[in-house]
Design a protein around this nucleic acid. Structure first.
Length: 436
RNA sequence: GCCCGGGUGGUGUAGGGGCCUAUCAUGGAGCCCUGUCGAGGCUCCGACUCGGGUUCAAAUCCCGACCCGGGCGCCA
């Protein structure tokens, strides 16, 4: 900005030891307290608050007038002298020499940024840019950033290579889930619901271990506090690995993420009032059949071969009380690429990673034999012709492989004890919301 | 998609036929106040989602639309 002095310090970097130093702080007008002869301006930036103190008898009329006219949430920069004073909030305050109004906020604000009044989520999401000025709400996204870093660090450390697969895909590649159709020049295309087919194809390349953290799109009508139509999935696929190996990778990853957040985001956790539980592998494993038995004891009756209902997930969660795996699923409820057990073909090498509140991830060892996969696709009522691009990767040397997909938003919301998944994504896309 | 619940100042709420020219908080405008830190005190400003209907009388009851919340279903 013309003639503008750049910021030299964040609020938290301004310390009492800096008494007498000139600094430039910049941010939003959080509050103004006019005591008559004394005027306090509380400036907020990403890292916290700094108090700017104006004494009527020692401040120019121009500066006083300027501050008196400032509306809440306007953006200003303040050049001033740090003064150590035990009466000030951080033990120091800023005596301004110059205040620049960089942007004036209109009044009234559509949201109470002070955090004193909790607005409804719908109101908050309509003005997300303001909502995220509330430190508590913003902290979620600092943690989200750390979670993504922790996932990458962990997988990089285990020899995984980060990849990017297309999000615009040709016709109904996987069956099942509803897809969003889009127009792709003269053809119809879809938004990808999962990188599944592509990461499997990469197993035929020699990249061996890959991961991708990317959006997935699901055109389902679900409208709940734990579903999004655009979500983030952390996916891995590993060659020469079985379902057991990728389960161990998954539980170690979850534990590592918790540990990283506990160590690197203690400040954010404190703001959110969350204390992370100990998460240590190995997680308990129960078979699908055992799960049904446990549920029957609690009068939640399910037929063998049915997927778990919401009530079943919740009841199981109460029984288990911590992260756990459900293994040995009926082959019929899992997708066509899932490897059945050799001895009992009605059961397959699939698993779900569960948090007591909900499902976080699902994965399996995959079928790597071309003929077997082709037959499985047919058995599911799908046409192998439309899967040619995928099936071809199995014809010229495909190693055994396994993998999983983990819902990043669900990981975050369960970790941070947040009720609504929309809180952990910046601009949620759900059944009702497409804007902003 | 189904079942419940709900839409009141900018925000969050109270009120469920007449007591409503509608409560409280927050906010905004203004005045007073030299150490606030959810500052305090005083004054003022600002709202019944929309459209039909019932009734002497509707924020309140009924119908419809739109919007929102919760649960379920759907969702590898």
């Amino acid at each position: 900005m013309e003639g503008h002095v750049p910021r030299t310090h964040y609020s938290k970097e301004i310390r009492p030891e800096m008494d007498g130093e000139e600094v430039v702080a910049a941010g939003w007008v959080h509050e103004r307290r006019d005591l008559g002869g004394l005027l306090f301006l509380i400036l907020r930036d990403r890292e916290g608050f700094v108090q700017v103190t104006l004494r009527k008898d020692r401040t120019s009329e121009k500066l006083l007038e300027c501050v008196k006219r400032l509306s809440k949430e306007s953006v200003v920069s303040v050049r001033g002298i740090v003064r150590s004073d035990k009466r000030a909030p951080n033990g120091c305050e800023l005596i301004p020499k110059e205040i620049k109004v960089l942007s004036v906020a209109e009044t009234p604000l559509p949201l109470e940024v002070s955090g004193r009044i909790r607005s409804e989520l719908d109101t908050r999401l309509d003005v997300r840019f303001l909502d995220l000025r509330i430190p508590r709400n913003r902290e979620i996204f600092r943690i989200r950033s750390e979670v993504l870093k922790a996932i990458r660090r962990f997988l990089d450390g285990r020899g995984f290579i980060e990849v990017n697969t297309p999000k615009i895909v040709a016709a109904a590649t996987e069956g099942g889930t509803a897809l969003f159709p889009i127009s792709y020049f003269e053809r119809e295309a879809f938004l990808s619901q999962s990188p599944q087919l592509y990461k499997q194809m990469l197993m035929a390349t020699g990249l061996d271990r890959v991961y991708e953290i990317a959006p997935i799109f699901r055109a389902e009508e679900h409208d709940t506090t734990r579903h999004l139509n655009e979500a983030t999935s952390a996916d891995i696929e590993a060659a020469f690995a079985d379902h057991e190996w990728v389960m161990r990778t998954l539980e170690a990853l979850i534990a590592s993420v918790y540990e990283n957040i506990r160590e690197n985001s203690s400040g954010s956790l404190e703001v959110l009032g969350v204390e992370l539980p100990e998460v240590k592998p190995p997680f308990e494993r129960i078979t699908y059949t055992e799960a049904l038995e446990l549920l029957a004891e609690r009068s939640v009756e399910l037929e063998w071969g049915e997927d778990l209902s919401t009530a079943a997930e919740k009841t199981l969660g109460e029984i288990m009380g911590a992260h756990y795996f459900i293994v040995e699923w009926p082959t019929s409820v899992k997708p066509y690429y899932t490897m059945p057990f050799e001895s009992r073909e009605e059961v397959c090498k699939a698993f779900d990673l569960m948090h007591p509140r909900m499902e976080l991830a699902s994965g399996s060892q995959r079928i790597h034999d071309y003929e077997m996969l082709r037959a499985s696709i047919e058995r599911c009522g799908l046409s192998p012709e439309s899967f040619k691009f995928y099936l071809d990767a199995f014809r010229y040397g495909m190693p055994p492989h396994a993998g999983w997909g983990l819902g990043v938003e669900r990981l975050l919301m369960t970790m941070l004890e947040i009720e609504n998944i929309r809180e952990v994504i910046l601009f949620p896309r759900d059944r009702k919301r497409l804007v902003p």
